[in-house]
Design a protein around this nucleic acid. Structure first.
Lengths: 200, 200
DNA sequence: TATAATATTGAATGAGTGTTCAATATATTT
DNA sequence: AAATATATTGAACACTCATTCAATATTATA
């Protein structure tokens, strides 16, 4: 019972931190502000997260956890069919639903921390490796992929996806945005179509 | 003369800000710390940069200015030859010299600001468009590129480069790093080799 | 040389920071 | 019901923050 209170409070605090960070930025979201937002004294936050660093670490866990949900449409499809076709993969990877899962501003602020914090760097690395492994498994279920090095293919596809999200975040103009997305989707389709297995 | 003092001081301050941010992170680099680092009172910094926001804006100008220097090896080569071959382009884009030009931690911290600051977003967008336009011009000088949509090609190449830098920053292991770089370089070579012009 | 403009200093401001601590309330275990 | 563990409170801490201001030093202009 107390265990439940503890975990519920922790989650409440992390989510409050996250939601405030979306609006104010990670660097401007203080423990006092989180407390005011959630109507609880800062000392209670410190009770569950002894230092701000620990709190940030938990926020990152929370964000990365959400990040893994991208594959949900594909997993859902796999429950009914044996393999997934290319278009569902591409459309899922570039869907804007992704942006709804987590806030890009907070995500990149946390990402920037990898350069000065090895623990965070490792967490990010593990997540990104997971994303690629999952894509490889999905690709391996497809007969058209036989004989291809799906591990390398997954790496190359994700580089396009991640580069695209990075770049496209700079564009507000809907027309320019969607035209560029088309280029990058085609780029992934080309990778999937490529006949020869990737050379080492 | 006074003009010179002013611009020299401004540059000194921005560089101090930048150098401290590399070590402590952008969010932990205060005006007081910059002052102590440069042995000048905070009030002098405020004299040249009335608000912290303006100072950050100038830091971003400074970083983006450095970013544009990637093309230097190619420009140097173009002074002697009429066109640049693919390998110099690919090697330049993936060279680690790039990392020496500016600090990635500071760069991504500043990048994260685009999500809450439209002025910064626009600056970043303009830089990234410039990078692509320059690459297009370089590609256009090459006869092998005739008939290809070099504008789209430049977009697709840069997506790979930027995605790669984002992803590779998570890896410290030299072997894993260089193997992955190989994949991504090949990916760009494939783009350059592709016969058909890109469909709209 | 006198005047105006800019450069530089140092002290002060109030607000906000993360964190600590002792006291109290609530729930769990004995 | 008593003892123990956890949850919650609110006040306080020393410190740092960006920013302001009046005073002084230096340089440029008239």
């Amino acid at each position: 019972m107390k265990e439940r209170i503890s975990t519920a409070r922790k989650r409440e605090i992390v989510e409050g931190f996250y939601n405030l960070s979306i609006v104010n930025g990670l660097e401007n979201t203080s423990i006092a502000k989180i407390g005011k937002h959630l109507d609880m004294p800062p000392s209670l936050i410190m009770h569950y997260f002894p230092t701000r660093e620990i709190l940030i670490s938990n926020l990152i866990d929370y964000i990365l956890e959400k990040y893994l949900l991208i594959y949900q449409p594909i997993i859902k499809d796999l429950e009914q069919n044996e393999s997934v076709d290319a278009s569902l993969i591409v459309e899922t990877l570039f869907s804007r639903n992704w942006n709804l899962l987590f806030d890009d501003g907070v995500f990149y602020s946390c990402y920037a921390l990898i350069f000065r914090n090895d623990k965070i760097k490792k967490e990010y690395r593990i997540l990104h490796e997971k994303l690629r492994e999952s894509l490889k498994e999905i690709l391996d279920k497809n007969k058209e992929m036989e004989g291809k090095d799906t591990a390398v293919l997954a790496e190359q596809i994700f580089i396009v996806v991640e580069g695209a999200y990075y770049y496209l975040s700079m564009f507000d103009d809907e027309a320019a945005y969607s035209q560029k997305v088309t280029y990058f989707k085609n780029q992934v389709y080309d990778l999937l179509r490529k006949k020869e297995a990737q050379l080492l």
